[in-house]
Amino acid sequence: MSAIETPDPGTDYRVPALQRGLSILGMFSARERSLGMNDMAERLGVSPSAVYRIVQTLADMGYLRKIGRNAFELGPQVISDGFAYLASRDLVEVAMAHLNDLRDRTSLSCHLSIREQTDSLYLYRALAPQRLAVNIPVGTRLPCHSTALGRVLLSGLSEAQLSALYQHIRLDDYPPPAPRTLPELQQLIAEDRQRGWVLHRSDYSTAIATGIRDHSGSIVAAINLSGPDAVMDTQIAQQGFLTTLLAASHDISRELGHAGWSSSL
């Protein structure tokens, strides 16, 4: 059995054709959806003939698609491979580091939840070290309409979907500030949807929540910051926490393939 050779650190093992091919794919963006072969060659600093075979290979494999005599755009294989990878990443795995960092930066508890019918199911928590920290265990289910996380999740539904979901659900068994009728819930969620985040007070604590979006722009989860009213009671404190929360949700959504969105403060 032959011994495995140890790579020489001083040797350049790069494959120029592969490097050029990946560089070509990286040239496309939302602002430049199509490029000619001459454009590609110019940016690489080579002649068009030097990239011809690379471009043709990428086109044959579906990574580029010819749209004119000498113009190309990204092909369906790029989208297929990218979304397959993003879909394979576990939501908790992606969000965990961001929520831990969010807890460390704010000293507040953070939670991640998804919607299952009319319940908000808690998937992860980053528990603050404070004695009065808000602590909701993983696996807890709470009614969506009565929590900040749940209302954010409901804001991802259309008006028709929301009405169908709650058509036969009684809401008058829950104490204020939870809505007690379907019209009240519809109005509340419409305002939440427009705002992009929810602030909710209950039991001497306050929670601020916002959504996590996937590559299609759909809300697939929600995260929050929650703590005692004494810490979160002022408008200045709330705005600071909200800014930090929105930044974390943007980062998580971007890792899930979402291009980004803005929420009003």
Rank of each mutant, 00 (worst) to 15 (best):
Q194M: 10
V51M: 02
P9A: 07
V78F: 02
Q77F: 00
G260W: 09
E116Y: 11
Y204E: 15
L149P: 00
I208K: 05
S2A: 14
L256Q: 13
R14Q: 13
L44T: 01
L153F: 02
P179F: 02
I208V: 11
E191V: 07
Y63E: 03
P129S: 15
L153N: 05
T140W: 00
A3T: 10
T210R: 02
R170D: 13
V198Y: 08
Q19L: 09
L102Q: 10
A209T: 09
Y204R: 13
D214N: 12
L121G: 06
I223D: 10
M40F: 00
A17T: 14
I24R: 00
Y166S: 11
G156L: 02
A30Y: 10
A164H: 13
S80F: 08
D60H: 02
M96T: 11
V220P: 12
R195M: 05
I67E: 04
S120M: 07
V51D: 03
G75A: 01
L18E: 09
S109N: 02
R170H: 14
A160E: 14
L22T: 12
A17V: 07
H200S: 11
E32N: 08
Q77M: 15
L242D: 09
T57I: 05
A148V: 05
P7M: 01
R33N: 12
Q187P: 04
S253F: 03
W197T: 05
A207Y: 09
H98I: 01
H168Y: 11
I189F: 00
Q167N: 12
H215G: 08
Q161V: 01
S205G: 08
I54Y: 01
W197P: 09
G257K: 02
P16I: 07
T206A: 04
I24E: 00
Y13T: 09
Y166D: 11
D192V: 10
D90G: 10
I219F: 06
L18A: 14
E5I: 06
A95M: 04
H98P: 06
L165A: 07
E42D: 14
Q19D: 14
S205A: 13
D203A: 10
I219Y: 06
P129M: 09
I236E: 14
